[in-house]
Amino acid sequence: MNIFKVLLSIIFILISPTASSGIVKMKISKKLYILSGKEYGTNIGLIAVENGLILIDPMPGDNHLSELDQVIQSIYNKPVIFILNTHSHSDHTGGNKYFEGKGGKLLKGDIPLEGFTHIRVESHSSIDNIFYHKESNAIFVGDIFDTSWHPTFYAGGIKGFSNAIDTILNMGDDQSLIIPGHGVTANKSSLIEFRENTFAWINRVRELYHKESDLEKIMADTQLKNILQKFNASDKATFIPEKAYKRFIERTISVIDNEESLQQAH
């Protein structure tokens, strides 16, 4: 087991998650919980402030949202007053309307919340919002970093991904907790390893792509498969289905083509 997996295991144990009707509750501090579970495994931030609660990335699913609300009220018994999204994909925004209907205000653009730092980057999507909550020393990074899947840097390409990771590493301190879009929480050491593995993946795909046009042969490369397994933080027996593996290679090649075209243009 590599350092990344060991650190994730330790953090997961220390947080001591508890389940409630399929929704996992992880108490980070008196003022911060991470909720996850159901269909997408989206990590949902729940932060207690003076007048209510801040909800980050409420999951979708009409038949799950009342249950999520019940879990929230069982923890704090306060209203959700603000809603934040790390990006616009439905597995992170699907619950917005439900909680807006109960009085929550969806904040877009600049986030004028005391104790929060908000920076926009482009990596997983065209607008990725990174939120740092100083009091809990926690950084919400959305799908820029996912400890349950392979990296998805398609919108920002290699440059955008690199900038996003540097931005996260420059927030908080060495003890900051990093909350990925999906999967177990992590720290900066594991994020650095994730970045190194991502660059190793891109470089190996580039090397194979320039030598070999047969996608099936690229997929069969032992070194590439070994790199892919480094993203398998939870040691799942079946981590990435064959179809998703192929799609990951294809989309990585597309990113490489785009960036090489830009370099030639300049």
Rank of each mutant, 00 (worst) to 15 (best):
N187A: 04
G156W: 07
K230H: 12
A155D: 14
T167I: 11
Q229G: 09
T152Y: 04
G183Y: 00
I192A: 15
L215W: 06
I158A: 03
F161S: 02
P151N: 04
I158Y: 05
H150L: 13
N232L: 14
I158E: 07
P180L: 05
N226L: 03
K188A: 15
N170T: 12
V184I: 15
M171H: 03
R195C: 03
K159S: 08
S189N: 01
G183V: 02
G172V: 09
K188Y: 07
T198A: 15
S190C: 08
F194M: 10
D214I: 07
G183N: 00
G157K: 10
V184C: 11
K211L: 12
V184G: 08
A220P: 00
L224I: 06
K230F: 07
T152G: 04
S162F: 01
N187Q: 04
L228M: 13
E207M: 11
E212L: 08
N226G: 02
V205E: 01
E193Q: 04
L191Q: 02
V205F: 00
G160F: 01
M171F: 05
I192T: 14
E196M: 13
D174A: 11
L191C: 15
I168E: 14
E207N: 15
K225C: 11
L208N: 00
Y154E: 08
G183L: 02
I178T: 03
T198Q: 06
N163E: 12
M219W: 03
S190L: 05
E216C: 08
G183Q: 00
G183T: 06
G156E: 02
E196D: 15
T167L: 01
S190Y: 05
K217R: 04
G157F: 10
I218P: 00
N170D: 14
I218N: 00
F153A: 02
Y154W: 12
E196C: 14
T167N: 01
S176P: 13
V205T: 01
L215Q: 12
N232M: 10
K217Y: 00
V205K: 00
R195F: 14
W201T: 07
V205Y: 01
D173Y: 10
T152M: 03
S190P: 01
G172C: 09
I165L: 12
N232H: 10
D174L: 07
F161C: 08
E196T: 13
G181H: 03
D221Y: 06
S213Q: 14
I168Q: 04
D173H: 11
H150R: 02
I218H: 00
K230R: 15
F199I: 14
I179K: 03
